[in-house]
Simulated assay, not measured.
Amino acid sequence: MSGGKVEKILSFLEKHYPEARIILNYNTPFQLLVATILAAQCTDERVNRVTETFFARYPSPEKLDESPLEEIEGAVKPTGFYRQKAKTLKAVSRALIERHGGEVPDRMEALTDLPGVGRKTASIVLGECFGQDTLPVDTHVLRVSRRLGLAMSKNADKVEEELSSIVPEGKRWKFALTLGWHGRTVCTARSPKCSVCGLEEMCPKIGVKGDKKG
């Protein structure tokens, strides 16, 4: 992978997606951690509808920890896989209380040591709430980076390693946000809009089966 191609991609993404941001609504690191856990196999938009009332009802790890599991299951049911998610939220809340005084830690190792918290979730919290230059690999980053030939693995953690080796330090968080935004708006999963994509000339279109205008 040539450094010139990576720089061109970075420049394009930064220029065309200045509005790129985390779509999940939150006010505290704990809320973003919860929302990201709920977003597994669920759209961010649906999670936002659920957390609008969920955060008012469960504003802290302490409140979640003391609440009945069945009650939490009912609250998160619209996000899917609700039994496992409710169990994870209670376990995470207990771990935060016991290990970190109820606060969300600002270290990768401490976050990924929490029950059910992987590198993607930890990277989102660290990048968004603590200003760290992480590179979270969600489904959009995974898909678009492969189509562009930037990373070939299908494993998110390995893709993070591949991308971190070619994206300069200081630009990784912004890269993840903007590449993800490109995936949401242009390089979509089922019908990528290759003909209107500003990256088409340098894209090998790996795995792309169709091209849709506009």
Rank of each mutant, 00 (worst) to 15 (best):
S153P: 14
T178W: 00
M152K: 15
A151C: 08
E169K: 11
R172H: 04
F175Q: 00
E160W: 06
W181R: 13
A156Q: 09
S165N: 13
S145F: 03
L148I: 11
S164W: 09
H182C: 09
E160P: 02
N155W: 11
H140V: 10
K158T: 15
K174W: 08
R146S: 08
W173I: 00
S153H: 11
V159W: 02
F175Y: 02
V144S: 02
V141K: 08
K158H: 13
L163E: 04
V144P: 04
P168G: 09
S145R: 04
V167P: 01
L142Q: 15
A176R: 00
E169F: 07
H182A: 04
R146V: 05
L148C: 13
I166T: 06
T178Y: 00
E169I: 08
D157N: 15
G170D: 10
P168Q: 13
L177G: 00
I166L: 14
V159N: 01
I166S: 09
K171I: 00
L148A: 11
L148D: 07
K158R: 15
D157S: 12
S145I: 02
A151R: 04
V167D: 01
W173A: 00
G149F: 01
G180M: 06
G180L: 03
K174P: 03
V167R: 00
E160H: 09
A156T: 08
H182R: 10
S145M: 09
